[in-house]
Design a protein around this nucleic acid. Structure first.
Length: 423
RNA sequence: GGAGAGGUGGCUGAGUGGUCGAAAGCGGCGGUCUUGAAAACCGUUGAGGGGAAACCCUCCCAGGGUUCGAAUCCCUGCCUCUCCGCCA
């Protein structure tokens, strides 16, 4: 959520910056609502003040043993007038709040202009696309040939966009999680957390998935539903919801491995083959919660922490800066890490590292006490995948495949897997 | 699942329906003292919003209700704790 005060003060500039990400802000409508709000609020507060003053007088008169009858008569109609004014104001405030909640974050000044992913800016490339002396298979053919990756049986159990992994692949999958968590906790200074996979509405609201992206979420059917987390970002970032974190505890650096559940509504026909887009997948997430002045540096650092995993696994990748049009709702700036997939002959997203500024913090009321002023100030939040486990598995299978169908184990995983080849 | 207790400011914790946004303590900040620090003492210190300002409004888990007036009374929900049962 943006700062309503700031929007009000500079509506035009806000609209211009939002236009960079293809969002048309209805300036006239907001202005009209705002004007109405001001009038209503003033009126309501005047009535509330009158009620308070009168009630106090009655109390004092009673204490002094005087008759309160005449005073009560004066107050007669006040209650109803106040009730009506409050109701009207609340309706308007709710409406205004709904508008505000629907507005995406302002893009950072460094965000490239553009409509969609074709306009993203490549920042750097690390490694070269893997070369083969034979025609490489994609992970579906590889997995099927080895009998370790079964989409048919998963479809029987659940439906499309699910997978069953077996034997060495299931083991590799688990090893990757272990490897990523080890690196982030032991070398990058993150604290590992274990969190709920089912969360309440407030949590999804805090990180910005709700109310706008309800249709992307899986939810239980309780009257007060639980939501299956679409990413660990939700439970982990919400650790500081409604908190005033003491300055000494900052920065907070958390990492968590969780499954993620997404409906993938609106992606019909996209990545229908293979492991790339599933309703359920594992991810190791990195989250940093920092004072505003440190957030840009933290965003760069977190991105490099995610990159470190790709580097250790010797997977070729590139870093792109998302253009305005491709930016997620809550993000002010995002770097995507794209790994080389020989099976697709393309770079594909394997991590998305986003800077949210105070956008999520404002929704969550996540604050810290400023060391100088002692006043609560909004924190900044940053997160990124480090990495998406399923896609990393795909990348290893495709980049490390041998002509005989075996898969070479990346050196970095040898301590965990204790074998040089799968197959 | 059964029985009970409770949710108040950064924390602990008082609060007879009427100057209660809330005692007290801790913590924080400022000061006195000190070469410096500690201790002691004095002062100060909740959050959000409106307003140029004076000042005003809202908030004592959440949502309703009673009342001229609710932290305090009533209803509903959520959460926490204790005991019993069950259980990975």
């Amino acid at each position: 959520m943006l700062d309503s005060k700031a929007i009000r003060q500079d509506l035009k500039q806000t609209a211009e910056r939002l236009a960079l990400r293809g969002y048309a802000l209805d300036v006239a409508e907001l202005e009209a609502l705002e004007e109405k709000r001001k009038a209503l609020q003033t009126e309501t507060q005047a009535l509330q003040n009158e009620r308070n003053v009168r009630s106090k007088e009655i109390g004092q008169a009673k204490a002094a043993g005087q008759s309160v009858e005449p005073l009560l008569e004066e107050v007669n109609t006040l209650g109803e007038r106040l009730k009506a004014a409050e109701a009207e104001l609340n309706t308007l405030l709710a409406e205004l709040n709904d508008r505000l909640l629907a507005i995406p974050n302002l893009p950072d000044s460094a965000v490239p202009a553009g409509q969609d992913e074709d306009d993203n800016e490549e920042i750097r490339r690390v490694g070269e696309p893997t070369k083969f002396s034979f025609t490489p298979l994609d992970h579906v053919d590889l997995g099927g040939k080895l009998g370790w990756m079964d989409f048919e049986v998963a479809a029987k159990l659940a439906g499309s966009r699910f997978v069953v992994l077996k034997g060495p692949l299931a083991r590799l999958h688990r090893a990757l999680i272990q490897f990523m968590l080890n690196v982030h906790t032991q070398e990058h200074g993150y604290e590992e957390v274990y969190v709920p996979y089912l969360v309440n509405r407030d949590s999804l609201f805090g990180t910005g998935q709700l109310p706008k992206f309800e249709e992307d979420q899986f939810a239980t059917r309780d009257a007060d539903p639980f939501y299956l987390i679409p990413t660990a970002e939700v439970p982990v970032t919400n650790l500081v919801r409604d908190e005033i974190v003491s300055h000494e505890r900052l920065p907070l650096k958390y990492t968590a491995h969780t499954p993620c559940f997404r409906r993938e509504a609106g992606s019909y026909g996209k990545d229908t083959r293979g492991l790339i887009r599933q309703h359920q997948f594992e991810k190791v997430e990195l989250v940093q919660i920092v004072p505003p002045e440190d957030s840009d540096a933290a965003h760069e650092a977190l991105t490099q922490h995610a990159e470190a995993i790709l580097q250790r696994l010797k997977l070729p990748y590139r870093v792109v800066s998302l253009c305005g049009g491709d930016l997620g709702f809550s993000a002010t700036k995002t770097y995507d890490l794209e790994v080389w997939l020989p099976g697709q002959n393309a770079y594909r997203e394997i991590s998305s590292c986003s800077h949210f500024g105070d956008f999520q913090a404002r929704r969550m009321k996540a604050r810290y006490r400023h060391p100088d002023t002692q006043k609560p100030e909004l924190l900044h939040t940053i997160n990124g995948s480090g990495l998406a486990v399923g896609r990393t598995l795909v990348a290893i299978m495709e980049n490390y495949q041998c002509e005989d169908g075996r898969i070479k184990v990346p050196e970095a995983l040898l301590p965990i897997l204790n074998q040089e080849y799968l197959g």
